[in-house]
Amino acid sequence: MAEAATTAARRGMLDHRSDVINGVSLVPAAPAYRMSLRARPDDLVALGERLGLALPTRPKTSASAGERHALWLGPDEWLVLDLGGRDPMQDLAGLQVLHSAVDVSHRNTAVLVTGEKAADVINAGCPQDLSLQAFPVGACSRTVLGKIEIVLLRTGEDAFRVECWRSFAEYAFSYLADAARGV
């Protein structure tokens, strides 16, 4: 995201933290656009058209189009991520369809967990079944990691995106690092 010279600089919660432990790499995700989207079933098509992807309606699934991802979090709730610098809030501006779109780009931050033992590391604090059968690539869920809430997205067989609120990011990173030392 290019910023004008006069613009206040951006500082992430996990700047300067990244690690590789027991073959598992923990890297803070780059800044991204994030939008919490709420809507009823009848309006999903219109919203999807504006966003450029069909909003998923099955639990624990996500939809992707290029750098944009829509994660099903609940029956009327999606987390829309845009890693390519296109603000989804802008795409929905002025749309006369019943919905709630709230910018949460800065509310969340994310740790990218990759490596053969990535699922084991996350399972040190996340009680869900992360086998590929139960949680295939593209699966996503709000859940817990230790004592915090996270949104988990499987981006590859050995790769996950762990989203959490920014003030919990240090806890999340430290938890994952401690878990990686113990796998």
Partner: peptide, 15 residues
């Protein structure tokens, strides 16, 4: 297990 030291409870800090 993991819940000791800094992981006993999350410490939240503002920007």
């Amino acid at each position: 297990n993991h819940a000791k030291g800094e992981l006993f409870d999350p410490t939240r800090r503002t920007p």
